[in-house]
Design a protein around this nucleic acid. Structure first.
Length: 824
DNA sequence: AGCACGCCGACT
DNA sequence: GTCGGCGTGCTC
């Protein structure tokens, strides 16, 4: 006779136990057990019970006497859908992470061990309980005594094998409701609600009982009689009174105070309605194309390549509107940094309470609440950073990824997933459409669009026929030759001055924060470096400290050189702080603001600066990366890029692409209002094609050139790259282990007849960032064709997992990154 | 992570 | 002869 067995991933932080364990399923559990449920299983010699997640169930006709039995079900239904579970398992394979890490990413936020299923009474049963079985009546009786009861407790009290069926039945007829809660660590928020004690007494009667002098009490009673149950806060406001009145009514036993749990809603209050715009002809065409393709099942992946200011957001909004009308749900991914009110406002302003927002600044409790709102179907749209791609919708219609080229879509933690690839996979699994949008598509995406894998839609014009800004390139070598040693070229200086006179706004962009980027001794050449990271320290003027931008270490700047004792310590290089300083000196009358990690670390400071720019309280805004993301300031007419070469000179295969994107995106901030914009780009490489093509706003030509280089030097999209970093405290051991791992991988490749891959393995070498946070780092880079990559991954995984347990490699860790953002 | 097993030295 | 310290390896 065949039995059911289940594959379980145990929640045990040890890489050796990170594999599916097979458990037998007791007969009475067979029907209830589903993949995606949490279970309690006996594990190890001592058979201690640990929690695990069922990833698969199957029929099995062989012997099962060797297997242990699942002890208990912890959920009455799967906490994640089949598709999402599959997505998690797919991620594990694709990005070489552990089962547990992959599942954590797709499960509800927080500690999945601490989740409890609760059962509530939704509506008390009416008199016709005769249709209910006595077990069902027992359940109701239990709930009459308690407000809620955990699934576990209910099982203990009602000893019945079909308990889940009974719950389901009661839920169907609207008596019960189930809900998930995270354990102790995350508190719930309650709010007081006020209602009349007895709703059956007539108003006149109630009023007559109240002392004639108590006007406010009467008012409250009247209000409650008219409106029914009201939140305390609202009641006080509406009746314009204070707590005392409520207190005395409570004493007289005329009103009831009810505590109800409120879901935290992190969406800021008071967002104005965001009016629907009429689409331009091009926008409309774009929208219709997408809708038609979805309708006719032709295509379901789209790239909207629209220049900055071409109105992509309005297309997203109307697209979502149409899909919601059809009962579908939508996920919108935006780069973390632009999850400031600007983007959120547009979605909330259009769809109101139908929107949930997920971003990194939410507390654990807020995050869990949002997750539940989505799961329960209370919202139709999620706007969020990369992890929002896992939002637990059941009827997903579309995933929109704005600013598709942004590197924040790639996770730096395990699983090191790329939200774009995950979104694509999820869309395939759930039959949803994928829409990518950007002014500067990533080379990989555009390549696929050109090959017809993704449908390309192009918007070449800004809305209202606004012109793209004029890009002027300034050769800083000429400046130097003509005696200008300042970080501002004459052209940029003049333009700022002019702009100030015209009462227009200016944005200055510099990719480095801090004051000076390194300090050095002029006598002996000593450079101040971080003792944990082997990276030069940045001088921060405001607190007179040296900071490491990688590990956060803070040090006091030396007065005399620690190496040779000379006094000739000099500060080199410029960061945003220094630019701010200089601008304030040069234009004392201007109102200047700086926006980088250092000025926006406090909650709300980001918004404040942006608000000030919007209101026109700022003349010149100086900032890093942060200011490139989709900001829309109509009064900005001049953008100055202080040093375009910073990103160009990085030894990374994406540096040209980054530079082009940066110039285009930053430049795109200019001239979005009624005035034409101008961009001044300062560089030592004016002839570089990234800069030249950005100047001409010519993406296609940039792409054509870059794609040839990618093919020539075997980089994505032609090849898949895997970066393996071996790191640890002990320098000698790291290099030793790296070499050994390399040897083992080569050996395995030969065993598997994959010698041809050997020539595309680079290393082991010290990583470009050789020491970070006290860890020495070595790196091996693998390049392979898409077809061979899964075999290669398998081998890398085997070798590394195997070794990570070995005594010999104690204190050594492996970091595997599939298709990394950069190979630094 | 736990837990048992086994090898080895110390102690009854 | 056996008790326990610790290194090693396995957990369906």
């Amino acid at each position: 006779m065949s039995k059911i067995i289940a594959k379980v991933i145990v929640d045990n932080r040890a890489s050796k136990t990170d594999k599916p364990y097979t458990y037998a399923v007791k007969k009475d559990m067979e029907e209830d057990l589903k993949q995606g449920m949490r279970v309690l299983v006996p594990f190890g010699m001592g058979n201690r019970f640990i929690k695990g997640i069922v990833i698969e169930t199957e029929r099995y006709s062989g012997d099962i006497f060797k297997l242990k039995y699942i002890e208990e079900l912890l959920d009455d239904r799967p906490i994640i859908s089949e598709e999402i579970l599959e997505l998690g398992l797919w991620m594990r394979e694709k990005y070489l992470s552990s089962y547990l890490d992959a599942l954590h990413a797709v499960m509800p936020p927080g500690d999945i061990k601490e989740i409890t299923t609760y059962i509530y009474m939704k509506n008390r049963p009416s008199s016709e309980t005769y249709s209910l079985s006595h077990i069902q009546k027992n359940i109701i009786n239990l709930l009459n005594k308690n407000e809620k009861i955990s699934f576990k407790e209910l099982k203990e009290k009602i000893k019945d094998n079909n308990i889940r069926k009974h719950i389901k039945k009661l839920e169907e007829i609207g008596i019960l409701e189930t809900d998930l809660e995270v354990g102790t660590k995350v508190g719930k928020r309650y709010e007081k609600y006020i209602d009349l004690k007895d709703n059956n007494i007539k108003l006149e009667e109630l009023i007559s009982e109240i002392d004639n002098r108590a006007f406010k009490q009467k008012e409250i009673i009247e209000y409650l009689y008219m409106h029914g149950e009201t939140p305390l806060k609202k009641l006080l406001k509406e009746v314009n009174t204070s707590h005392g009145v409520i207190k005395s009514l409570e004493k007289k036993n005329r009103i009831a105070i009810i505590e109800r749990e409120v879901l935290r809603n992190p969406i800021p209050k008071g967002i104005l309605n965001y009016e629907k715009h009429r689409l331009t002809e091009k926008q409309q065409y774009c929208l219709d194309e997408i809708l038609n393709c979805i309708k006719e099942n032709k295509e379901n992946k789209f790239l909207i390549h629209g220049v900055t200011g071409s109105g992509k957001t309005e297309i997203y909004l109307q697209l979502i509107e149409k899909l919601i009308e059809k009962g579908k749900e939508a996920i919108v991914l935006v780069p973390e940094i632009s999850l400031t009110p600007q983007t959120v406002e547009r979605f909330v302003g259009r769809f109101g309470q139908n929107v949930a927002v997920l971003h990194s600044r939410l507390s654990a409790g807020e995050r869990f609440d949002e997750w539940r709102r989505i799961k329960r179907g209370e919202v139709k749209i999620v706007v969020g950073a990369r992890s929002a791609v896992f939002a637990p919708f059941n009827n997903l219609g579309i995933i929109i990824i704005d600013e598709e080229h942004e590197n924040s879509y790639k996770s730096s933690m395990n699983p090191k997933y790329n939200a774009i690839e995950v979104a694509e996979k999820r869309c395939e699994l759930e039959g949803a459409a994928l829409v990518l949008g950007t002014a500067t598509p990533s080379i990989e995406t555009y390549y696929r669009a050109k090959n017809g894998e993704i449908k390309l839609l192009t918007l070449l014009d800004r809305i209202n026929n606004k012109k793209l800004p004029i890009m002027n390139i300034v050769d800083m070598r000429d400046e130097l030759n003509s005696g200008n040693k300042s970080i501002l070229s004459t052209d940029l200086y003049n333009a700022i001055e002019e702009n100030l006179k015209d009462k227009k706004q200016t944005i200055l962009f510099l990719n480095r924060r801090g004051y000076s980027t390194f300090i050095s001794c002029r006598k002996c050449g000593y450079i101040a470096k971080c003792k944990n990271c082997d990276i030069s320290l940045t001088y921060h003027f405001s607190d007179n400290k040296l900071k490491c931008h990688y590990c956060g270490m803070i040090d006091t700047p030396p007065r005399i050189c620690p190496k040779c004792g000379s006094k000739y310590i000099k500060y080199f290089g410029s960061g945003t702080q220094r630019v701010e300083d200089l601008i304030k000196k040069l234009f004392p009358q201007a109102k200047v603001a700086r926006m980088d990690v250092d000025t926006t670390s406090r909650k709300g400071s980001h918004e404040k600066i942006l608000q000030n720019v919007k209101n026109g309280n700022i003349d010149i805004l100086i900032g890093t990366q942060m200011i490139t993301k989709g900001l829309d300031f109509p009064l900005v007419t001049l953008v100055g890029i202080i040093a375009a070469d910073t990103s160009l000179n990085l030894p990374d295969f994406r540096s040209s692409e980054r530079t082009f994107q940066l110039l285009t995106q930053v430049g795109g901030r200019a001239g979005r209002g009624d005035f034409e914009g101008q961009v001044i780009v300062q560089t030592y490489n004016p002839k570089h094609f990234s800069i030249q093509m950005a100047k001409e706003h010519n993406y296609t030509q940039f792409y054509n050139k870059e794609i040839l280089l990618r093919r020539e030097f075997k980089y994505p999209p032609y090849m898949e790259i895997i970066s393996l970093v071996i790191y640890g405290r002990d320098k000698g051991k790291v290099s030793e282990v790296s070499k050994e791992v390399y040897g083992k991988i080569i050996l395995e490749l030969r065993k598997n007849k994959l010698e041809k891959l050997e020539k595309d393995i680079f290393g082991p070498n010290p990583a470009p960032l050789e020491k970070l946070k006290n860890n020495h780092r070595w790196q091996i880079i693998f390049k392979s064709d898409k077809g061979d990559s899964s075999m290669l991954k398998d081998i890398i995984n085997r070798v590394c997992i195997y070794n990570s347990q070995s005594k010999k490699y104690k204190g050594i860790k492996f970091s595997i990154d599939v298709n990394p953002n950069s190979i630094l």
